[in-house]
Simulated assay, not measured.
Amino acid sequence: MTWLGIDTSGDVAVALVRTDGTSRTVGDDAPRRHVEQLAPFVRDVLAAEGLGVGDLQGIAVGTGPAPFTGLRVGLVTARVLGLALGVPVWGVPSHDALAAAAADVLDEGTPLLVVTDARRREVYWTAYDVRDGAAVVVGGPDVAAPADVPRRTGEVVVGGGRDVHPEVFGAVETPASDRAAGLRAPDPALLVRLAVARSAAGEPLPTEPLYLRRPDAQPPTARKRALA
């Protein structure tokens, strides 16, 4: 079986995952080019494996948290593909993929914080504990100014928000940090891994987006009539 993973919560990334666990991922970190890049990435990753969209058995898509426009591109693409092909579309929080990658290399009981850029001098954050080799949510997801994000002693911080605000999130260092230092963006192959496991366990996998705040662009409010 073959699954497609899509994440547009930050960078644009697409992965093709087979039943045997092998995967191929393509992506780019060019900002705000989600519409132009996503469809070609899907085409390219399938072509590289000699497959077409008709070979897909399911699609996993990152649900954020992330800004409105980029996240919407991935979710809409996944839903349209799923509807056209008649295959399931599973939603997985994008932070969970980052946390799962960190849990693979961190020790049992390690406190973990995932932070990604929310713009407006804010970050999206989710707190986890590493338990039995998995990342378990213990706080969030939420959006806040970096200085207002709850911190824990000895935690490991991963995600692109650390690069944007190193004066805040570079402050807590542990030996485990070195093993997770390169984790900056969600791997869509891990979205597939999580989706397949959660689906098998009967967990709900909604594709509703985690915007956590209203979009930047808002329709103008109605003008008040002046009294005659």
Rank of each mutant, 00 (worst) to 15 (best):
W3Q: 11
L4P: 02
G10L: 07
A13E: 01
L16T: 14
R18G: 02
G21M: 03
S23G: 02
R24W: 05
V26D: 03
V26E: 06
G27R: 12
G27Y: 07
H34Y: 12
H34A: 09
V35M: 10
Q37F: 01
P40N: 04
P40W: 03
R43S: 10
D44L: 12
V45G: 01
D55I: 06
Q57V: 08
G62L: 15
A66G: 14
F68E: 07
L71V: 14
V73A: 01
V73P: 05
L75I: 14
T77L: 05
L83C: 03
L85V: 13
V87M: 15
V92E: 04
V92A: 03
A100L: 01
A101N: 03
A102E: 04
T110G: 09
L112M: 01
L112C: 02
V114A: 03
V115L: 04
A118I: 11
R120V: 11
E122G: 12
Y124I: 13
T126K: 10
A127Q: 08
A127L: 07
R131I: 08
A134V: 09
A135K: 09
V137Y: 01
G140W: 09
A145C: 01
P150W: 07
R151P: 01
V157F: 07
R162G: 11
F169R: 13
F169V: 09
D178T: 10
R184L: 02
A185E: 06
P186V: 03
R193I: 00
A195H: 14
V196D: 02
A201N: 00
A201C: 01
G202R: 10
E203H: 09
P206N: 02
Y211S: 15
L212G: 05
R213E: 04
R213V: 15
R214H: 15
P219R: 15
P220C: 08
R225F: 00
